[in-house]
């Protein structure tokens, strides 16, 4: 596991001068990703915040090879790059060992890019797919995705007088990826940088596809204080909103088990996207119940596979 001091030695492969909002969680994740991945990496991106803010022509924040194709196809695109690399290496035209990363937001991963991701994983390409999951289409102005949590206000699941935000639970993509029989799947947050670094390194060391779903605090979309981005990520874990766990070679491991989980309200009400739920006891109970069920399910899976 790398120390911070060791990580600083990589140099900034994702540089300053990007146009992400102040307090953006996604850029913290990308900085950590690149500090761990190092220079011999090719990164492919889905259209979205982290692609747009980092490559406004003629500027780029990337100090590694970076390929953006379209919204729904970063996994397919990187599968093409990785395959071409193998073809060229076989012919001796490429000598170096290169790692391949595809990333996308939750819209580009859970929704429009799910087929492309599933296909690439099934084919077994040697790549890490990282989803920075801020739970909505933030780049287009905060629209609901299948990763948007129950009750959240977005501009296409607005909290109104009759409907209180999104009325469906979020899709559990991490479990869907586990169902692909992948060797390595994980959930993480930028708060626990050491855990996230560890997971990135495990994923990149694999010969085959790996998937990491990283909670990505978004001050603009969540209606939260930019200074609190990391604290909110921490609260997400402490309230069981975002279990930090990994699935490695058939075994589940919950990396962080809060001794005494905090109540979900502590997470919800530091964000304006949930403020309309303040007096909606039933809806909050529904969220609480769902999270508890998912948590117990996860504990069972860990027990059963170990």
């Amino acid at each position: 596991m790398p120390t911070i001091k060791e990580l600083t030695r990589t140099g900034d492969l994702f540089t300053s001068g990007h146009r992400a909002c102040a307090g953006c969680g996604g850029t913290i994740i990308l900085r950590l990703l690149m500090a761990n991945a190092g220079k011999n990496t090719v990164v492919g991106a889905a259209t979205g915040c982290m692609e747009v803010v980092s490559t406004i022509y003629p500027y780029t924040s990337w100090d590694v090879n970076f390929v953006h194709n379209a919204f729904e196809n970063s996994a397919a695109t990187v599968s093409g790059i990785e395959t071409a690399y193998r073809a060229l290496k076989k012919k001796g035209k490429i000598k170096k060992d290169i790692k391949f990363i595809a990333y996308g937001g939750d819209g580009g991963t859970f929704d429009i890019g799910l087929q492309s991701l599933s296909g690439a994983v099934e084919r077994g390409h040697n790549m890490l797919y990282l989803c920075y999951n801020n739970g909505a289409y933030m780049n287009t102005g905060i629209q609901r995705s299948s990763a948007t949590p129950f009750g959240a206000h977005t501009t296409t699941s607005p909290a109104g007088s009759k409907i209180k935000g999104k009325m469906q639970q979020r899709k559990d993509l991490t479990e869907i990826m586990i169902a692909h029989d992948m060797k390595y799947v994980a959930q993480a947050t930028p708060h626990n940088w050491s855990d996230l670094s560890n997971k990135i390194n495990k994923a990149l060391a694999l010969n085959g596809p790996a998937f990491i779903n990283v909670l990505s605090p978004c001050p603009l979309g969540w209606g939260s204080d930019p200074a609190q981005s990391i604290q909110i990520a921490k609260l997400a874990v402490e309230t069981l909103y975002w279990p930090v766990y990994e699935y490695e070679n058939g075994k589940y491991k919950i990396n962080i088990k809060p001794k005494k989980p905090k109540d979900i309200e502590e997470f919800l009400f530091v964000q304006n996207r949930f403020k309309h739920l303040k007096n909606e006891k039933e809806l909050i109970d529904k969220i609480r119940k769902h999270l508890n069920e998912k948590w117990n399910e996860l504990l069972n899976k860990e027990k059963c596979t170990n």
């Binding site: 492919g44 390929v67 194709n69 379209a70 729904e72 196809n73 397919a76 695109t77 990187v78 599968s79 093409g80 790059i81 990785e82 395959t83 071409a84 690399y85 073809a87 060229l88 087929q115 492309s116 599933s118 296909g119 690439a120 099934e122 084919r123």
Partner: peptide, 19 residues
Amino acid sequence: IAVESEHSAMSACVGAATT
């Protein structure tokens, strides 16, 4: 690459061709 759609076929072709 036996892709899962023509969309991914052309996407993978674009990725591969960038190399």
